[in-house]
Simulated assay, not measured.
Amino acid sequence: MYHIGYVKLSEIEEEYIHSIKKECSVEEINQNISSQQLKTKDGIIIFSKNDEMICAASEVILKIREQSNAFIRIIAPQMNNISKVVFLQLGADGTFDDEQSLDILRLTIINALKRRMVEQQEKPERSNEEPPSFILDNRNQAIKIEGKPTAPLTNLEYRTLQLLADNLGNTVTYEEIYEAIWHQKYTDEKYKIANVMFHIRGKIEEDTSNPVYIKTVRSKGYLLCEV
């Protein structure tokens, strides 16, 4: 049986919970999610009411992603496409609104959890392996891993990666990243930084759920690991 935690940012219809109870044990957790709670969860559902709660939902996604790679789904009866894109960019695995049926909700959650479990079981052990080397190519604003170029980096992505490389093995704080890349005073724009890191990881990590190069340092920032 899968273990699901859910966060209520608004009142919810109990039918959402009942729809997955046959295959999952379900437990309510508060917005101040602890790493201990996340260790026992295969996935997290965030219940929101509408687009007015986008900031609160985004903060919860960031808290989860700082501590875990658990499956995340946002459920909000009223949700526009902009909100959906923001949630996905921050690391949510899917969204659900009142245009979809409960069967779709149940099946997409269960299918995602099944795939995740299979991937974890088949994942090769890396504990005794040296991670592959990488080289930043300043002229072409690109990166090569094991001598092979990855997907092209945008200017913003490359400058962010270069900043982390200049501080190899040391944590670069959210404030330091934001002010160095955007040249503006930092006022807690974690979501912008998380969005850039999301895209960089998608291009350089073999498995974004278990990153080798860029590690999240909880509540502080990011660290590029020595390779």
Rank of each mutant, 00 (worst) to 15 (best):
Arg115Trp: 08
Ala92Glu: 08
Val212His: 11
Gln184Lys: 13
Phe87Ala: 07
His18Gly: 00
Leu9Cys: 02
Arg116Lys: 15
Asn128Gln: 14
Gly94Ala: 06
Val26Ala: 02
Glu13Leu: 08
His199Asn: 09
Ile46Val: 12
Ile12Ser: 03
Phe134Gln: 10
Gln67Asn: 09
Gln37Ala: 12
Lys63Cys: 01
Cys24Lys: 00
Ser68Asn: 04
Val26Leu: 13
Pro152Ala: 07
Leu107Gly: 05
Ile177Gln: 02
Gly91Asn: 04
Asn210Ala: 09
Ala151Leu: 14
Arg115Ala: 11
Ile64Tyr: 04
Thr216Ala: 13
Tyr186Arg: 06
Ile204Met: 06
Thr208Gln: 08
Lys21Leu: 11
Ser10Lys: 03
Val60Arg: 05
Tyr222Thr: 05
Lys63Trp: 04
Asp51Glu: 11
Lys215Gly: 03
Met53Pro: 00
Arg218Ala: 14
Leu105Gly: 01
Ile64Gly: 00
Ala142Gln: 14
Asn80Asp: 15
Gly43Ser: 05
Asn50Leu: 03
Gly147Pro: 09
Glu125Gln: 14
Ile12Arg: 08
Tyr191Gln: 15
Ile104Cys: 10
Lys21Val: 10
Ile145Trp: 07
Ala56Glu: 14
Ile74Trp: 07
Gln100Ser: 10
Asp166Met: 09
Ala165Tyr: 15
Val227Arg: 10
Arg218Tyr: 11
Arg201Glu: 03
Cys24Arg: 08
Ile214Tyr: 03
Glu122Ala: 15
Met79His: 04
Lys22Tyr: 10
Lys190Trp: 08
Ser209Pro: 05
Ala112Gln: 10
Leu9Ile: 08
Ser19Thr: 09
Lys21Thr: 12
Glu14Lys: 11
Ser219Gly: 01
Thr108Val: 02
Leu62Pro: 00
Leu136Trp: 04
Ile181Asn: 03
Glu14Pro: 04
Val85Phe: 09
Gly147Ile: 12
Ile181Gln: 03
Arg106Asn: 11
Ile143Phe: 00
Leu38Pro: 02
Thr173Val: 01
Asp42Leu: 02
Ile54Cys: 07
Arg218Ile: 14
Val227Ser: 09
Gly169Tyr: 04
Leu90Asp: 03
Asp51Ser: 12
His3Ile: 02
Thr187Asp: 13
Lys220Pro: 06
Val227Lys: 10
Leu168Cys: 06
Gln184Ile: 03
Lys84Thr: 10
Val227Gln: 09
Ser133Asn: 13
Ser68Lys: 02
Gly5Ser: 08
Thr40Gly: 05
Thr160Arg: 00
Gln162Phe: 00
Arg139Leu: 08
Lys185Val: 10
Leu164Asn: 06
Glu189Phe: 06
Gly202Lys: 10
Thr40Glu: 13
Asp98Phe: 04
Arg159Cys: 06
Ile4Glu: 05
Thr150Pro: 00
